[in-house]
Simulated scan of single mutants.
Amino acid sequence: MTETHATLEPGAPAFPPGRYGRRREPGRRRPLLAVLLAVAMVAVMTLVAVRLYRQYGDPNYDAEVITYTGITDSQVLVDFRVTVPEGGSAVCLVRARDRDGAEVGREEVTVTARPGQRHVSTQHRLTTTARPFIGEVMRCRPPG
């Protein structure tokens, strides 16, 4: 038996039988489940971010380049300031790059603050393999 417009409910589309498969009944939506999944996802992402920050993002070790001078074909003099925990020390990675951005020198430098102080200003002469254009401090971390 074929469906005709007389046997269909008003507003329902008329499809040839067997052509498009079985039509699903409109399902019950579950907005509560979607909200709970979203909240769980945000909680997990927050926990991951906190853990990674604690592991890699230590604000107690912060370096800033004051100036880089004494540029020759084989060296650069880098003046920088490091913030460390009170009376602590840090290992800083100092590097030099040429005009093209290629690294021409790299060295780890250990700096130590005096007891009761949090800031260390130091000057380091970095030997390079070619004429540097810039001297910079990449990062500082706790020693060890």
Results as ranks from 00 to 15, higher is better:
residue 143 P to T: 02
residue 125 R to C: 14
residue 2 T to N: 15
residue 131 R to T: 14
residue 96 A to Y: 00
residue 108 E to G: 05
residue 22 R to T: 09
residue 81 R to T: 08
residue 143 P to G: 01
residue 107 E to R: 06
residue 118 R to A: 07
residue 61 Y to H: 02
residue 106 R to P: 02
residue 98 D to G: 02
residue 20 Y to I: 08
residue 57 G to P: 02
residue 39 V to K: 01
residue 98 D to H: 01
residue 30 R to T: 11
residue 72 T to P: 04
residue 48 V to I: 14
residue 1 M to A: 15
residue 108 E to F: 04
residue 28 R to M: 11
residue 102 A to Q: 09
residue 64 E to N: 15
residue 107 E to D: 07
residue 99 R to L: 06
residue 15 F to L: 14
residue 24 R to L: 09
residue 139 R to E: 10
residue 57 G to W: 04
residue 74 S to V: 11
residue 105 G to P: 00
residue 31 P to F: 04
residue 63 A to Y: 01
residue 98 D to T: 00
residue 82 V to F: 02
residue 67 T to S: 15
residue 72 T to M: 06
residue 56 Y to L: 08
residue 100 D to C: 00
residue 109 V to Y: 00
residue 67 T to L: 15
residue 142 P to Y: 06
residue 63 A to D: 06
residue 104 V to F: 05
residue 129 T to G: 07
residue 16 P to V: 12
residue 46 T to L: 13
residue 106 R to W: 05
residue 15 F to E: 09
residue 94 V to K: 00
residue 99 R to K: 12
residue 80 F to T: 00
residue 129 T to P: 03
residue 54 R to P: 05
residue 55 Q to W: 11
residue 80 F to K: 01
residue 106 R to L: 12
residue 72 T to K: 10
residue 47 L to E: 12
residue 115 P to Y: 05
residue 74 S to M: 09
residue 22 R to P: 05
residue 4 T to L: 04
residue 73 D to T: 12
